[in-house]
Design a binder for these strands. Structure first.
Lengths: 146, 146
DNA sequence: AATGGACGGTTACGAAAGCAACCATCAAAA
DNA sequence: TTTTGATGGTTGCTTTCGTAACCGTCCATT
């Protein structure tokens, strides 16, 4: 009867690594302790694209629309995000960061990049291999992403 | 001002890949649709080691003790797992799979291995690179694992 | 023997997540 | 213009999860 060593099983290892990295990444938020991952993703997306609808944010950051909706509201209550209603389609709203939001973004991003760089640095020459494998796997498991 | 492309950000990519793989892995459970990941991990651990305490299962499968406790009860209600109380320390219980549990394990494992093999196959020569990088990262982020 | 701290395991409670139902709006067809 | 179906977004319900509190047991000190 064939056995399976859980600790070497790829899905398990990926899950563990992902949660460990996410956990460690929390520290990067720095003074903004109580930021959740969905909130970070919305922040990052709006920092990247300036203005977007909630739907577009969800598409870009791979989040369910309810997750986006709640994260948006949380950021809005934090005064990091403002809504502007669309004139030609009054169902959607255009979301963008406030000055405070941009400030937080500008504060977090360099630390996030440094965090990522540190990970890649510990990998050394293996880093490119990992990124290449990630490309390949994403294209296998998450088709329909640009 | 430095920007960050979320779609290329390593923690984000790892998280996405991990959930995509886990999701796909669900299909592998086959007829046992309604098995959760914690339940699968307990099953896999007991299949691997025959008999273990809940605490040991948690240590091996990286799960919080409450998660283990609930998964154990679920498997017990499914008649896949039985408890035997320890004589020399009556706080702990020794857990092991029933005949039904072993049957399910024997049913799932080959499919799980095939699933993993398929992933590694699509990576081709990159597979070893990924596994190597995983080793390295685990050792960085999850110290204190054998 | 008695007591106090540590430990294995369960449970109550609050936070987060997804599904489904819903609301308002749009677009197209009748 | 009315109707019908689809769409952007929010909310209610349920499940899942972690923290903390708890229970019973062990063990070390006294």
């Amino acid at each position: 009867m064939s056995k399976l060593a859980l600790e070497h099983f790829l899905p398990y290892r990926l899950n563990r690594l992902s949660t460990a990295v996410s956990l460690r990444f929390r520290r990067v938020y720095g003074p903004h302790h109580n930021l959740t991952i969905p909130e970070w993703r919305v922040l990052a997306t709006l920092g990247q694209f300036e203005t977007m609808s909630a739907k577009a944010i969800g598409a870009h950051s791979a989040m369910h629309k309810t997750k986006v909706s709640r994260a948006v509201r949380a950021l809005e209550e934090r005064r990091w995000l403002k809504r502007r209603e669309s004139v030609d389609d009054r169902r959607e709203e255009f979301l963008s960061l406030t000055a405070q939001g941009l400030e937080a973004y500008a504060d977090i991003v360099p630390r996030a990049l440094a965090f990522e760089a540190q990970i890649l640095a510990t990998l050394g020459p293996q880093a490119q291999a990992l990124l290449g494998a990630l490309d390949r796997l994403e294209e296998t498991f998450e088709p329909g992403r640009s």
